[in-house]
């Protein structure tokens, strides 16, 4: 934790400075957290809802944050939980099979005004959607953001070895999917 972050954490624990410090945190981390959510949820509107929930959860849970982990790790953890909860709720609402939710995500993506991918990028997104949620999470964090395994361990609470294995299997599955659809 660097000195700026230490100062922020100190301010978060002062009732009169708390809102100001949190406002700085939102401005500093909103983009990274947004893209983390968006990669899983795909549609902008839904990602926006989850992002709001994430920061409101963080705001309401400030008393529980003592600065034991980095602010970014803490936010990533909340965002990940919120994203997985959103996906679970969507699955429960649809009351259909697991594949249907992924199909629905893909349809939303193709209809989304804010999707500007080419054919290759769309094919890759389809391949990623074939992965189980947790594996998708690991793949997205490593492949697109190149987050270190140590950082991922702190965020996801999974050991580095398991994360490496998960990423390896995810790559294999995606390669297999891509070779089959060729």
């Amino acid at each position: 934790m660097n000195s700026t972050e230490e100062e922020l954490v100190y301010q978060l624990n002062q009732p009169n400075l708390r809102a100001n410090a949190f406002s700085v945190i939102v401005r500093t981390y909103q983009e990274r957290i947004y893209w983390h959510i968006r990669k899983m949820i795909l549609s902008h509107e839904d990602a926006n809802d989850v992002l709001q929930n994430t920061f409101m959860k963080a705001w309401n849970g400030l008393d529980g944050f003592r600065g034991d982990s980095q602010v970014s790790t803490w936010l990533y953890r909340i965002a990940t939980n919120e994203t997985l909860t959103w996906l679970t709720n969507k699955r429960m609402r649809s009351q259909n099979s697991i594949d249907d939710v992924e199909e629905s995500l893909l349809q939303n993506l193709q209809a989304d005004t804010y999707f500007n991918g080419n054919e290759i990028q769309l094919k890759l997104q389809k391949a990623i959607l074939t992965l189980p949620e947790k594996q998708r999470l690991v793949f997205n964090m490593k492949y697109f953001d190149d987050i270190t395994y140590d950082e991922m361990e702190a965020i996801l609470g999974t050991s580095v070895g398991a994360l490496k294995a998960s990423y390896h299997y995810a790559v294999k599955k995606i390669e297999k999917y891509l070779s089959e659809v060729e």
């Binding site: 939102v26 909103q30 709001q52 080419n118 990028q121 094919k123 890759l124 492949y143 390669e175």
Partner: peptide, 29 residues
């Protein structure tokens, strides 16, 4: 399709956000 994953272009996210989205989001928060 086999070399899609090694293509740098594939590492770019194919998503956009509305104009001024992050500024507005921060104000909303």
């Amino acid at each position: 399709n086999n070399n899609i994953l090694t293509d740098e272009m594939s590492k770019k996210l194919p998503f956009e956000v509305p104009e001024n989205y992050f500024n507005e989001f921060a104000h909303q928060m």
